[in-house]
Design a protein around this nucleic acid. Structure first.
Length: 156
DNA sequence: AACGTACACTTAT
DNA sequence: ATAAGTGTACGTT
């Protein structure tokens, strides 16, 4: 499968994506864009739509390592909600600091939603900038509100 | 509210 | 081999 790359906007940042087929190999945030486009799901997500990025695949999920277990647990966090480092640690059978390591080295943020992992007493960290994390969480909260509104009007 | 320390895993030396 | 670093948590002071 041919390796593709491209970027899209996310607020003030550009999201660089490398992928082939439905497998995402790398996601990173940058201040400038690159030529090429990104998978449709990621484009929609960055535009604030409530899409499920767990449809996408990435290689770190297929390893038999502690990090891989951590990433699986993180992927289960639903859109719009958060879990603490300690919470993920419990699920993956490890300790909070290891979760921090795994998040810091997450090769595919967004696809593995490390922005939904927060500290017990605050938002926690995010590279290259916690502002991105704040923006993502705000965006998802908004997406949830919209969903609840839709449900109310349709009385589901 | 500040301080120590236990936690366990990875990467670098 | 071994130490250092880590996007923490929790108990104690």
């Amino acid at each position: 499968m041919e390796m593709k790359s491209g970027s899209c906007r996310l607020g003030l940042w550009h999201v660089h994506v490398e992928w082939s087929g439905s497998t995402v190999h790398h996601v990173r945030f940058a201040t400038t864009g690159i030529p090429g486009n990104v998978p449709e799901l990621i484009r929609k997500f960055c535009a604030g739509q409530r899409v499920d990025l767990t449809m996408l695949d990435c290689s770190v999920l297929h390893e038999d390592t502690v990090y891989s277990r951590i990433y699986h647990a993180v992927q289960k966090i639903p859109y719009g909600s958060t879990v603490t480092y300690g919470g993920i640690a419990q699920m993956a059978g490890t300790t909070p600091r290891v979760v921090g390591q795994a998040m810091a080295r997450n090769p595919t943020p967004l696809v593995i939603p490390c922005h939904r992992v927060v500290a017990a007493d605050g938002i926690g960290g995010f590279s290259p900038s916690v502002e991105i994390k704040e923006e993502l969480l705000a965006m998802e909260k908004k997406g949830l509100r919209k969903l609840q509104l839709d449900r109310r009007t349709k009385s589901i």
